[in-house]
Simulated assay, not measured.
Amino acid sequence: MIDIDLSRRAPLRLGVARDDDVRWYRDTPAERIRGVDLGDVARKSARARITHPDRGVVADIDVVIASDAATARGLVDGSFDESAGKTIVYVGTPAGLAGLIADIYTLGIADGAVLIPSGQGVAELIHDAVLPALQMMDLLADPISQALPA
Score class of each variant (00 low, 15 high):
Met1Ala: 13
Met1Val: 13
Met1Phe: 09
Arg8His: 12
Arg8Phe: 08
Ala10Phe: 09
Leu14Glu: 00
Gly15Thr: 09
Gly15Phe: 01
Val16Ile: 11
Ala17Met: 10
Arg18Trp: 09
Asp20Gln: 12
Asp20Val: 10
Asp21His: 14
Asp21Asn: 11
Val22Cys: 07
Trp24Ile: 02
Trp24Gln: 05
Arg26Asp: 15
Ala30His: 00
Glu31Val: 15
Arg32Tyr: 04
Arg32Glu: 13
Ile33Cys: 02
Arg34Gly: 07
Val36Phe: 03
Asp37Ile: 09
Leu38Gly: 08
Asp40Thr: 10
Ala42Trp: 02
Ala42Phe: 05
Ala42Asn: 10
Lys44Met: 11
Lys44Leu: 12
Ser45Lys: 06
Ala46Asp: 06
Ala46Gly: 04
Ala48Tyr: 08
Arg49Lys: 11
His52Tyr: 14
Pro53Lys: 07
Asp54Met: 08
Arg55Met: 08
Arg55His: 12
Asp60Thr: 08
Ile61Asn: 01
Ile65Tyr: 05
Ser67Arg: 13
Ala70Tyr: 13
Arg73Val: 09
Val76Thr: 09
Asp77Leu: 03
Asp77Asn: 13
Phe80Asp: 01
Ser83Gln: 09
Ser83Tyr: 07
Lys86Ala: 11
Tyr90Lys: 05
Thr93Glu: 05
Pro94Arg: 03
Leu97Cys: 03
Ala98Asp: 00
Gly99Glu: 06
Ile101Glu: 00
Ala102Val: 04
Asp103Ile: 10
Ile104Asn: 02
Ile104Leu: 12
Leu107Ile: 03
Gly108Met: 08
Ile109Lys: 00
Ile109Phe: 06
Val114Ala: 03
Ile116His: 05
Ser118Tyr: 11
Ser118Gly: 13
Ile126Lys: 02
Ile126Pro: 04
His127Cys: 12
Leu134His: 06
Leu134Gln: 05
Met136Asp: 14
Met137Ser: 14
Asp138Pro: 05
Leu139Ala: 02
Leu139Thr: 07
Pro143Glu: 10
Ile144Cys: 04
Ile144Phe: 03
Ile144Tyr: 03
Ile144Met: 10
Ile144Lys: 10
Ser145Gln: 10
Ser145Arg: 13
Ser145Glu: 11
Gln146Gly: 13
